[in-house]
Amino acid sequence: MTMKKVTYRQAINEALFEEMERDPKVVLFGEDVGTYGGVFKVTDGLKKKFGNERVFDTPIAEAALMGAATGAAVAGLRPVVEIMFMDWIGIAMDQLVNQTSMIPYIWEGIKVPLVLRTQGGSGSKGSCQHTKSLEAWIYHVPGIVVAMPSTPYDAKGLLKSAIRNDNPVAFIEHKMLYPTEGEIPEGEYTVPLGRASVKREGKDVTVVALSKMVVESLKAAKELEDEGISVEVVDPVTIKPLDMDTIAESVKKTNRVVVVNEAFRTGAVASDLTAQIQERCFDDLDGPILRVTAPDVQVPYSPALEQFWLPGKDKIKQAVLECMKR
């Protein structure tokens, strides 16, 4: 297969182009996604290609966007709705929790085939209303698939699967990943929802990492290799439903686990993954599962302060070393 190098941003953009071309029922809307092409330029060129009925800018009204995407999905479209920053999901949350996720269950299997695209993550000096990772909020509610790709390859293939899927899917991107590069096939491919991906094989410790933390974990693994520690990095890719089989298989081999999640520590997805792993893999574990997360502190602006908030390579390395000792 011929491969090409693209950024995470381009990969998502290609997925949107291809799926809109493939299915006239796919529509895309959100704040500034049309003429301007999105504040991160992820939707660049789509309005020009597909016209103002299928790709359009909306008022700044997240509740209306989420509710309208839900209704449009019920009535026959396959909407891709963008909430520009995940920090603003609170405004849309009532619709997501009390309409989108409820409808298939309560209304006898009526399908709600929508994709909620949003992005979270810190490292942008965005202060605390443009940096949060609130995936745990959505993860908590039954009925929503939650995907958090870490590579251009996964981002493109997974978004195509998400758009074709008949369930509501929250597709959570990371703003600091947009310029990162990776290889993808020249032609058509998809990545299935609900399947984890082993990003690096190793035998001493399993690091289960989400989104940008996969990239940080791979950096940590590389440095730890020089210290003689072999780290396996598992990326769940889809956190709900979780591919526990792939994680369990890795734990069986390494017997040690670190879970990495760039989010407030209390009630983070990492906490739940930790619980799930110990329930399933207790007999395979040689020590406690450790978590690397952000602390329970708001995200401050100053570069000098933001670094205290951000989890990353060094904190992951530290946790792996600690894990090896116990």
Partner: peptide, 25 residues
Amino acid sequence: ALGGCGIVGGGAAVAVGYAMAFKVL
């Protein structure tokens, strides 16, 4: 008849979505 809504004010945006689909289709 789609459907009842126990969240006061929660249904309006969904109805807008129905209408969006009708217009696009």
